[in-house]
């Protein structure tokens, strides 16, 4: 059994480091396989001069072929079984928007009936993710922040490593057109519109579709377009590693502190200074608007940081 496994492993690593004859002998020697037809195989492998032991090579090839065949049969079987199970499960799902769905319960009813009164946002989704389940959203923002921290740990080039830094900077725009006229003109027209739309989506999050995450992603994408068109020299004037640290930290701590205040007063039935306001007005829905702005800033910085770290290893 273990011998088979080693043959298999040798098969997969074969292109990297070809085995020598002794290794093949030790690996395949115990496989009892010597049928007629070996001679034909021998002829077809006549010109294989990489391995001197042709008979052993032949055996090795045969076991390799058999393992490949078994592997193929099992992979097809596994795929068919997974497809069957998934299709069977899908047929059991309740219909879209049906009344018999398990999610049609008192929680959903409460969100729909009391949401506007308790949260104050006309967009009930924003009400849900930033008021009833604001703790979840805090966790999500922190997950994004942690993802950036991991990327920084893995990809950021250290300050002292000037050789690598210079090489990355030279290599960076190697395959991209420098000062491309089409890209720059397109960016000049599109970037302001994209940024305005992102800000609109963030500020409008409690009134209509949108919110911090989507608006932040749009703004981040706009920044990336600006960077691709005009290069790091232009973006470093307003966005450096320091900006990223400051903005992310401020937004996340603002989120945590303001939500802690609202949880504290809400749980202890204390009077809170945060009012829900008139539903539909831009300054309404209590904490949802500031929280949307905080989430948007974190997401925008995250998207931009991902791009720059992937591309240059620094911001």
């Amino acid at each position: 059994m273990s011998n088979r496994f080693r043959v298999l492993r040798a098969f997969f690593t074969e292109s990297e480091s070809p085995l020598d004859t002794d290794q093949i002998r030790t690996l395949t020697g115990s496989v009892p396989d010597n049928r007629p037809g070996d001679a034909d195989m021998l002829v077809t492998h006549e010109n294989n001069i990489r391995w001197s032991g042709r008979n052993l090579d032949n055996r090795f090839e045969k076991s390799k072929k058999r393992i490949t065949a078994v592997y193929r049969v099992f992979s097809v079987l596994a795929a068919v079984m997974i497809i069957a199970v998934l299709l069977f499960t899908v047929t059991d799902l309740p219909s879209f928007g049906g009344v018999e769905k398990p999610t049609q319960n008192e929680v959903q009813q409460r969100y729909l009936e009391k949401g506007l009164e308790e949260g104050g946002a006309t967009n009930l989704v924003a009400n849900m993710i930033l008021d009833y389940r604001a703790f979840d959203t805090l966790g999500e923002s922190n997950v994004l922040f942690m993802a950036v921290c991991t990327v920084i740990l893995l990809l950021r080039i250290s300050q002292g490593d000037t050789d690598r830094r210079l090489r990355e900077e030279n290599d960076d725009r190697h395959f991209e057109p420098k000062n491309d006229l089409i890209l720059q003109t397109g960016a000049r027209v599109l970037v302001p519109v994209i940024q305005l739309f992102g800000i609109y989506v963030i500020l409008n999050g409690h009134l209509g579709p949108g919110g911090g995450f989507s608006g932040g992603a749009i703004m981040g994408a706009g920044l990336i377009l600006y960077l691709s068109a005009f290069g790091f020299a232009r973006t470093e004037r307003f966005f450096t590693f320091r900006t990223f640290k400051t903005v992310s930290f401020t937004a996340l701590s603002f989120y945590a502190l303001s939500k802690a205040y609202s949880f504290f007063t809400g749980a202890n039935h204390l009077p809170s200074v945060i009012t829900t306001g008139t539903p539909g007005a831009i300054l309404s829905a209590g904490l949802i608007l500031p929280l949307n702005i905080a989430v948007g800033l974190v997401v925008c910085c995250t998207m931009y940081a991902f791009y720059t770290l992937f591309r240059k290893g620094d911001m």
Binding site: P209, S214, I218, A221
Partner: peptide
Amino acid sequence: AITEAAVGAGV
């Protein structure tokens, strides 16, 4: 839809 357009198709 907005999030999918920005994150999935874009970033």
